[in-house]
């Protein structure tokens, strides 16, 4: 499912809202999530999961083209930990297929 498909499935069930509003709402939610992480804030959605930042310490890297050694600075990367409901639903779907 892509972002535009997500907008479509929501629009089908929220037929009292204008399609444009749903499009804006989905973009607004995603922008809030990106903005939170970009400012170092966690995201906590019960039953879905939580997003946080993990720190990657500085390390020696190599330019793959020249083989030259370069210093890579420490950085933060986004991390997602699925919540219990999401874990259980995804996994029980697998069990039902078996």
């Amino acid at each position: 499912m892509t972002k535009s498909e997500l907008i479509d499935v929501i629009a089908k069930e929220q037929s009292h809202l204008a399609y444009r509003d749903i499009e804006l709402a989905v973009k607004c939610i995603l922008e809030q999530m990106s903005q939170a992480l970009a400012s170092g804030e966690r995201i906590e959605i019960r039953g879905f999961g939580s997003f946080s930042l993990h720190y990657r310490p500085p390390r020696q890297g190599r330019n793959p083209k020249t083989g030259e050694s370069v210093v890579l600075t420490g950085k933060y990367v986004p991390h997602f930990k699925p919540g219990k409901e999401l874990r259980d639903r995804v996994n029980s779907a697998l069990e039902n297929e078996a």
Partner: peptide, 12 residues
Amino acid sequence: MFFEKIRGSLEE
């Protein structure tokens, strides 16, 4: 609904 539709897709 935003989060439920994402869960639903992953569940499928």
